[in-house]
Structures are given as C-alpha cells and as structure tokens.
Design a protein around this nucleic acid. Structure first.
Lengths: 234, 234
DNA sequence: CGATAGTTTGAAACCACTCAATAATGGTGG
DNA sequence: CCACCATTATTGAGTGGTTTCAAACTATCG
C-alpha cells in the first residue's frame, strides 16, 4: 500500500519501515545517554516547551519541525530527512514542535554527549552546516518566490533522487497538501490550485493517489522553480 | 557622525570600529590558516560562486548573507552579528553573497582547521545551533507573518539590548530600508509605510536620521510582533 | 549649494487569501 | 465486498494586503 513512502529527497535516502505503533507520543528515552526509536508516521517527537535536553538524528524517514502562533497559524520551518538532526535550542526548552511525516527511525542522545563525544560533535556539525544552507534556500523561497515557484521548488527537491532530467518517475510526497502549504508559507487552496495548474500546463501529472506526482517536463519545471543549478549529487 | 552604529541586537554586542578602507573587496587571506580583518561598511566578504574554502567568524559589527535571483530579486537570508559565523557551504563554492552592514572585524580560517582544531569546532557548533534557531524564527516571519508583524519583530530584535520594557532608548538600525525589505521579504515601500504607520499609532518614533528608532510603547510593539516570549537574556 | 542616493507618499493592479461548496479518498464495520 | 463516514483535496467567487509604478521629498557629501 505504502501511501507514504521513500523521502530521500531532502538530502538522505530512505526505506519503508514498518511502524510499531505506541502511545500518542514518542517514548522518551528517560535518562539513557543514547537511544534509538522507531516511530510510525505522525508521531510527536517533541513539543515546544519541552525540556530541550536531547538531540535527535534522523536515521531514516523524515520529520518536520514547526511552530504554531497564538492564533493558530503554523509554519513548518524545516523538513529533516535521513542524515539530518533536530532538537536544537538556545534556551532550556524546545522552541518548536517536531513530528514524523512518515515511519522513521530516530536516534537521540543527551546534549551533554555533545561535549563528551568528539565523533558525535563532528557528525552533528557537518549536518548542521548542510541544514543551514538548506534553510537559506528555504528563506529565499519564503521571502522572494511566488506560489508557483515555491511549489515547483519543493517538487524538484522531493524528486532529487531522480537522475538528471529523467522526467517520468513517480515522486511520492511525504507531506499532505496542508503540510506543504505550511512549509511553503501558503494556504492549502493555493497549493492545490498551483498543482492543478502545473498539471494543466503539462509540467507534472498528479497520480490518482494524490500523494504521488510524476514530472513530465523537467526543463519547464526547473525554469518555473527559479533555482540556480547548484548542488550536484556527490 | 556614526550614521550606522551599534548592532548588537541580533545576538551579540558591538562597538563602533573605525574602518580602514581598502579595495572594493575584502582582502582574502590567501592561504593563511587563520587571519583577522577589519572591514568598513558595505564591503563584500565573499560572493556566490567563490571557492568556499574559508569560514568566517564575526567578532564585532554585522554582516548580511544574501542571494540574488536571476531577475534581480534579492533575499537577505541571514543577518549575522558579533558572535556568529558565516561562510558555510555544501559544495565547493559559496551559494550566497556576504557583505558587512557596518564596520566589522572578522576572523577567517580555512575549513580544514575545523577538522583539526577541537576548540574551533566546539565554538562553531554552538554558534551554528543558535543560528539555526534564529533561522527558524526568521522562517516564521517570512512564511506566516504580515508586513506589520515582520517589521515589529525586526525592531524588537534590533532593540534587544534594551532592558526589558525600557521603551525610550534609541535603536540604531544597521540596515537601510531596502535591506530591511530584502530581509523581511517585502518591498521597501511597504517597510516605509509600515514604519510610518507604527509611528502614527504611537508605537515608535522615527528619528530625523532615519536610521534611528525609538520605541515608545514596548507592550504594543510586542503584541503587534506576534512573538511568544522565549529567549531570556542569559 | 548642487547632486545623488535614500526615503516617503500616492494610486492602481495583482497575487494570494478567505469563505464556501463540492469531490475524492481512505478507513471502518456490517 | 460494499456502504458509510471522516478526512483530505479540489474548485469557485470575492476580498484584501502587498506590490508596482510614479512622483515628491529629505538627507548626505563633495
């Protein structure tokens, strides 16, 4: 069935992980210095206001980090896939919420480990660098791109595993329309309309399962996304 | 004259540093592993496309990191003040441009130093954490806040050195209207109009030098900024 | 004191949002 | 397996906040 599937897209790779359902909240690893957990989709990893004593590494799957304003507006500030980290904070508590988008495996460790373990620190720092760069990209989208450019950009990013120019392979979106909207700073209606329009113009084809998208014309999509060619696959 | 002055605001503190004018571009530290430079305002530190072999620490002053799209749209993705770092990259070249906003002192080092020096790595990592959190805030502004909320937010941030609730002290903006606009994802006209409106309503007072602003009603400004109280001064 | 860059203000246009209704999907239980 | 329900997605019409284009105004510097 896999109504949600591989994410890779945002920088790592992924596999389908059967979820082991648990409570309504990710089991916190008490005082264990390092622990690993397998979470089903849409499981809260941490909430704004929680003690920010742990750092999380996404081993597989994907999570989103988001904030909610008093009046309910939500902004997904980061989508973290395999290879990324989350759970940073400046004060003693998390300032954002975090939940899985798809079944995911996370490793968490106490932040005090960062001071102790050189290997961990090295790893985290490299991931942080990549994530800062990704946030810059995101800021450009949010600040200066039109709705269409933003939607094209996220499609390209989610489809990045595809070989260059290989229009045609299906991309499974790990995000719902609402989540895409909250990530792109748009409304879900605008996201829908834009997707429909891109399909009408032959850029993409939306699958019958709405979470799958096929790129029909990579060149047009790239142009419409307004991204400078930069990141080449390692 | 100090038409541009203390920045502090974004997390560090600042002093006025007499600039030593040099060429049109910051002198690159050749192959020196670590070097320090004092730059006047509006000096380019690096450009998108440059070899990304160096990392920069802002010792005093402030810089902005920005991108320019093909059609000229610009987005300031980050304002880095004393204590912050810039110059990260995923590939071999910088993807953004960076220039000083005010006279600043920067220390740069070869990225290979990161692997070698444990102290440096530790320091950079901590700064990166804070900057990721700041980027999250910024993403909320760009994605979900109205023009007025964004402008109020940046004023508060630029005035953060002020003791809680001390409305009345002058804040010197290190950014021009255009730069504020490019940082907030707005046009300079909207920034102007919004500032004027905030003044008309008694939230702030704009100095005769347009780069200085006085907060008249901190409570109203906070409410209008739509920020949850979070970061308390250390 | 004139020139230039930066800022402010105005009027009209447009993109994205809001509100609202319909359609499709996915899961549940008979 | 199919009917039913809740959720998610799509489409439409009208509004509004921001942008765009244009013109004045103000500082700053030689």
């Amino acid at each position: 069935m896999l109504e949600h599937a591989a994410v890779s897209s945002f920088g790592g790779y992924d596999g389908h992980i059967a979820s082991i359902a648990s409570g309504a909240r990710a089991p916190m690893a008490g005082d264990t210095n390092v622990s690993q957990m397998r979470l089903p989709k849409h499981r809260t990893v941490f909430l704004a206001g929680d003690d920010a004593d742990r750092l999380f590494e996404v081993l597989s799957g994907a999570v989103m980090v988001y904030r909610i304003l008093d009046d309910g507006r939500r902004q997904v500030v980061e989508v973290v896939t395999a290879g990324g980290v989350c759970g940073l904070s400046v004060g003693g508590v998390y300032e954002s919420c975090c939940e899985t988008l798809v079944p995911s495996v996370l490793r968490s460790c106490k932040k005090s480990e960062l001071v102790r373990s050189d290997a961990l620190r090295m790893r985290v720092m490299e991931k942080l660098q990549a994530q800062v760069c990704a946030m810059h990209e995101h800021a450009v989208s949010l600040g200066r791109k039109t709705a269409e450019e933003r939607v094209c950009t996220i499609i390209l990013r989610l489809g990045m595993r595809n070989p260059e120019g290989t229009s045609g392979e299906d991309i499974i979106l790990p995000l719902s329309r609402t989540e895409i909207a909250d990530y792109l700073g748009l409304t879900l209606e605008t996201v829908c309309r834009t997707l429909t329009d891109l399909q009408r113009r032959g850029f993409i084809e939306i699958g019958s399962k709405r979470s799958s998208i096929r790129i029909l014309n990579m060149r047009k999509l790239r142009r419409a996304a307004c991204v400078e060619e930069c990141a080449q696959a390692a």
